[in-house]
Nucleic acid binder design. Structure first.
Length: 753
DNA sequence: AAGTTTCTACTTTTT
DNA sequence: GTAGAAACTT
């Protein structure tokens, strides 16, 4: 059966899948089937090499990818893959740390702190050290600390070269102490502490090294130092490290990723087998040519040439909008045309942008047009206030030492524990080196503490509630526990205040409850019982990515950032906001390295497209309150004219002339508002504004009423009527059994019979 | 202590 | 133009 599977692979893919023992580096261009290679490699190891699933570790970039790989493997092998370690670096590390926590003096029921929690800890550290938040911005400190951890630099190893860094070092130390006192780890700790565990506990290290006979890592170009170190240690016994990556798709430098880990791998494993996958199965030649032309500008890369035998395909469309709402309307309009012409289903269209803030104008346009859409990211579900509040309740129950979570909910909903009381509690707990909950318990045991009589009662009432929940957590499932908390804390009436927004928040809470209901602690290999279920639920929730929740079912266009688009593919892709300052982002303009990363980001976006690629930019754009004009992105100039609709010299001349003729009466297509447009301004791009977005020069009619035509999706039909628009031909066709459809000649690719 | 109004920083990207 | 913090009132 496995030979059948191998027969579906090309030569390079098969070489990678069946590579023998030892280190292997697969350099895989976009769309070259690297996920397939990874999956088949595991399948091959299990079925042909007789490697037990539990001796294999596969690291993916998202939880979704992990789920899909496991499902695919079970399908391929038809066998139980229990024990096979598949997951993100973070998820795998959590599992290891929960099990081995005692070896490094860690509470196994540690909580995981997200960015908001980290910020709260930084602020407390600043307060403890009597430092000014204005001079030492918590956000900047947080990112400095994170960067240090990604590079495996402990607080005591942190060396400062400036005064600011000297302060940052002290904040880092205090920050780490606070985490420890809270029995909490932040995202970066998950990686760093696992490496430290392996460094400090040789017996534990040896056990894991012995167990994992094969280690596979996807998206290797986006690993950071800590992750690199982790796999380097883990493969120490067997040296069977199989990594797949593409330096051109490295887009996570800001979180410590370094594509040079690919080079480092080649140096440290000089005997590694290197396999190149250059054949692309996804995109048309035109799209690949554009991608190649864009990425060729980057200096720090190994040149490679993607190729396909999928044919030329339709030209790329570049559209200059007047402003962001015109851009959004254009996108919606084009998606409608694509779907009505049968060129791409709604669900096959994706709209991508550099920053989440750009989604708003797009959403407005989709709503106004009555077109459904799926939004990935933006205000993330788990960052909503009501969700964070309730998770804080659960986290305190899971780990009562978590002062950050406790502080969050102490007076939410308001229960008479005001700022003054919280300050007093904090000072008292701090002075005695105890957690808040310990302080409250001492209060209950009869100690007076520094509190006024009036403050004591609400504190004790709160502690009673909390103790009740901790007690209940031994018996109730996470969902039942959540219900009890909602009921007893008064949170339900607190959110459901009668406002529409309140009902939205309540709906979010119901959604959270649904997720919690998936964790009942019954079977599960990871240890049964309600407490374990609570831990599993909180861990899952802490590590989810937005794409993880992206379902493939709904037939609606997807809106997302270029970053979240990595690893996905769509028949039709729109990349919006191609403007200097946005893509490339303003923060990259004066840094060549960051500029290269922006270019890679654009490259990733382009290569998501299978067939249709639309690149848009706006002449004006609202950035926070003010309206600013934006120059078209330099990246657009990298795309050869021959790949772009209507960007040949002749067409440009003609279109410019057409635009000039139209100048006096011209209004924007999208906004409906009349727009003053200086003659001659942006003459070269004015062509894109003429007509409703298509920019090819007018041609003659290709079809006439009565023509019999064939369409890939709708079958055979007869042309009823045809009309020329400024840039295209709209053909109305009656299809046998499918009814009358309006199609655009340029998209529908009708075949005359 | 809680509710209301005013101010301010905010936009890179995310496990 | 908005969300969260700070300032101010009840």
């Amino acid at each position: 059966m496995i030979s059948d599977l191998l027969s579906s692979l090309n030569e390079q893919q098969r070489a990678a899948v069946t590579a023998g023992d030892g280190p292997v580096l697969v350099l895989a261009g976009p769309g070259s089937g690297k996920t397939r290679v990874l999956t088949h490699r595991v399948a091959w190891l299990v079925s042909e090499q007789r490697i037990a699933p539990w001796r294999i570790m596969a690291v993916t970039f998202t939880n979704k990818a992990a789920r899909e790989m496991r499902a695919r493997l079970e399908q391929l092998l038809g066998q139980d893959l229990r024990g096979l370690a598949i997951g993100t670096f973070h998820a795998i590390c959590v599992r290891i740390l929960r099990r081995e926590a005692p070896a490094i003096g860690l509470n196994p029921e540690f909580n995981i702190f997200d960015e908001t929690d980290q910020l709260a800890v930084v602020k407390r550290a600043l307060e403890d050290l009597k430092l000014d938040e204005k001079r030492f911005r918590p956000q900047a400190l947080r990112s400095t600390i994170s960067k240090a951890k990604n590079e495996m630099i402990a607080p005591q190893e942190y060396t400062a070269r400036t005064y600011w860094e000297e302060v940052a070092g002290r904040v880092y130390s205090r920050y780490q102490e606070i985490l420890q006192a809270n029995s909490a780890l932040d995202f970066d700790d998950l990686l760093m502490q696992t490496v430290l565990l392996f460094r400090q506990a040789p017996a534990v290290r040896a056990e894991y090294q012995e167990r994992y006979q094969h280690i596979l890592v996807d998206e290797f170009q986006d690993t950071n130092s800590a992750q690199y170190e982790l796999v380097r240690i883990l493969c120490g016994r067997w040296r069977n490290l199989f990594v797949v990556g593409d330096e051109d798709q490295s887009i996570y430098r800001f979180r410590g990723a370094d594509y040079r880990n690919v080079l480092r791998f080649r140096e440290e494993f000089p005997n590694a087998r290197v396999i190149l996958l250059e054949r692309n199965y996804r995109s048309t030649q035109i799209i690949l040519d554009a991608a190649n032309a864009v990425i060729a500008h980057n200096l720090h890369r190994t040149p490679k040439r993607l190729h396909t035998d999928r044919g030329q395909g339709p030209s790329i469309t570049i559209y200059e909008a007047y402003n962001e709402s015109d851009e959004a309307n254009y996108v919606v309009e084009q998606i409608r045309r694509l779907s009505e012409s049968g060129a791409a289903p709604l669900g096959g269209c994706a709209v991508m942008y550099r920053t989440n803030a750009q989604s708003r104008a797009l959403e407005d346009a989709f709503v106004a047009a009555g077109m459904p859409y799926r939004l990935v990211g933006a205000t993330r579900f788990y960052e909503r206030r009501e969700i964070k509040d309730l998770l804080a309740y659960l986290r305190v129950v899971h780990n009562p030492n978590d002062d950050v979570s406790l502080g969050r909910i102490l007076n939410v909903p308001p229960r008479g524990i005001g700022a003054q009381t919280v300050n007093t509690l904090d000072a008292w707990a701090g002075a005695n080196a105890m957690s808040y909950v310990t302080a409250l318990r001492r209060l209950k045991a009869g100690e007076d503490g520094p509190f006024t009589n009036r403050a004591r009662a609400p504190l004790l009432r709160f502690l009673d509630l909390l103790e009740g929940w901790i007690d209940a957590s031994a018996r109730l499932t996470p969902a039942q526990l959540l219900d009890r908390i909602l009921d007893q804390s008064g949170y339900t009436p607190f959110v459901r205040d009668g406002s529409e927004e309140g009902e939205d928040r309540w709906a979010n809470i119901q959604e959270l409850r649904n997720v919690a209901a998936g964790y009942n602690g019954l079977a599960g290999e990871e240890g049964a019982g309600p407490r374990a279920a609570l831990g599993a639920f909180l861990q899952e929730v802490a590590l989810v990515a937005d794409v993880d929740a992206l379902s493939d079912e709904a037939d609606a266009p997807t809106l997302m950032t270029l970053h979240t688009a990595k690893g996905l593919e769509f028949p039709a892709v729109f990349i919006t906001g191609l403007e200097e300052g946005l893509l490339p982002h303003a923060r990259a303009l004066d840094d060549p390295d960051q500029m290269e990363e922006e270019r890679r980001l654009f490259y990733v976006g382009i290569t998501r497209a299978r067939e249709y690629l639309f690149l848009t930019h706006a002449f004006r754009r609202r950035v926070f309150a003010s309206d600013e004009t934006a120059a078209r992105s330099r990246f657009l100039d990298d795309i050869p004219n021959r790949l772009v609709q209507g960007r040949g010299a002749r067409e440009r001349q003609e279109a410019a002339r057409a635009a000039l003729r139209r100048e006096t009466t011209w209004t924007t297509g999208g906004t409906g508002r009349a727009v003053a447009w200086a003659p001659g301004q942006q003459a070269a791009t004015a062509s894109t504004l003429a007509g409703n977005g298509q920019q090819a020069a007018p041609r003659g009619s290709q079809f006439a009423p009565g023509d019999r035509v064939r369409h890939a999706l709708f079958g055979d039909g007869v042309v009823i009527s045809t009309s020329l628009t400024t840039d295209d031909e709209e053909v109305t066709v009656n299809f046998a059994g499918r009814g009358v459809k309006k199609l655009l000649a340029s998209f529908a690719r009708l075949q005359k019979l």
